[in-house]
Amino acid sequence: MKFKKLLAILMLAASMTVMDPSAFAAKGIADTRQNAMDIPFGQQMSLVIEGAGDQDWYKWTNNTGTMKYSYNFLTPMGLDCRYRFGMIVDYNNGKEFDLLIAKDLEDSGGSRSSIQQINKVIIPPGATVYYVVESKNGMNGQYKLYHSFLNM
C-alpha cells in the first residue's frame, strides 16, 4: 500500500514538472521556411522568440478541396518583445504571394499588446500558407498564433 501511495505521489510530482514543449523555442527547429513546422487545420500555437535573429516558421496546406478565406492573428503574451508577423502563400504552380506583413498597431499609436492580424487572404485547394514570426526589437517574448479558415 505504501508503495502505491509513493508511486502515485511521484507520478503526480513528475506530471506537475513536465512543461509544454510548444511553449518554448528551440534554436534550429522551424527557424527557416524550408523546415517550417506543420500546423494542423485551425490549431493555435504558443511559442517563444529567442531575441534577435530568431524566426519561427509554420505552414499549412489546403487539403480540404475547397477555397478558404484565411484569418490569422498574432497575440503578444508579454510587453517586452515587439513582433513582425508575416504570411506567404505558395500556390504550388510556380507562383506565390510575396511576404505580406501584418500592421503593427504600436507603430501608429496603439498598445504594445495589440493583436496583429492578416485576414481575408484566399487560399485555393493545394496551396500552402507559410507564417513567419520574429522580434522587431531583439527581445525575447512569448506569443500565440491563431489561424482559422472559412469557406468561400
Rank of each mutant, 00 (worst) to 15 (best):
Arg82Phe: 06
Asn62Cys: 01
Asn137Tyr: 00
Ala25Trp: 01
Leu12Glu: 06
Lys68Pro: 01
Ser113Val: 07
Ile118Tyr: 02
Gln142Leu: 11
Gly141Tyr: 02
Asp20Met: 10
Trp57Ala: 03
Tyr131Cys: 02
Met77Ile: 01
Leu7Glu: 04
Ser113Tyr: 06
Gln43Val: 11
Lys103Met: 14
Ala102Met: 05
Glu50Arg: 08
Gly65Met: 09
Phe85Gly: 01
Ser108Pro: 05
Gly109Asp: 06
Ser70Arg: 15
Val89Tyr: 00
Pro21Val: 10
Ile49Gly: 00
Tyr69Val: 04
Thr61His: 00
Val18Leu: 13
Lys103Arg: 15
Thr66Ser: 14
Leu150Cys: 05
Leu74His: 02
Met152Phe: 11
Asp98Ala: 15
Phe97Gln: 15
Ser111Phe: 04
Pro124Gln: 05
Leu6Asp: 06
Asn62Glu: 03
Gly110Pro: 04
Ala52Arg: 12
Gly138Lys: 09
Asn62Trp: 00
Met37Pro: 06
Asp56Arg: 14
Thr64Ser: 15
Gly78Pro: 09
Ser46Gln: 09
Glu134Lys: 13
Lys2Thr: 06
Asp104Tyr: 01
Asn137Phe: 01
Ser113Lys: 10
Ser113Asp: 12
Met45Tyr: 04
Leu150Asp: 11
Tyr69Asp: 12
Lys95Leu: 11
Lys59Val: 03
Tyr58Lys: 13
Lys5Pro: 00
Leu99Gln: 13
Tyr130Asn: 06
Asp20Asn: 13
Leu47Thr: 07
Glu96His: 12
Met11Cys: 12
Val18Trp: 06
Asp20Leu: 13
Ile118Lys: 03
Glu134Trp: 08
Gln44Trp: 09
Asp56Ala: 14
Trp57Val: 03
Thr61Phe: 00
Ser148Lys: 14
Ile115Glu: 12
Leu150Gly: 11
Met152Tyr: 07
Lys59Leu: 09
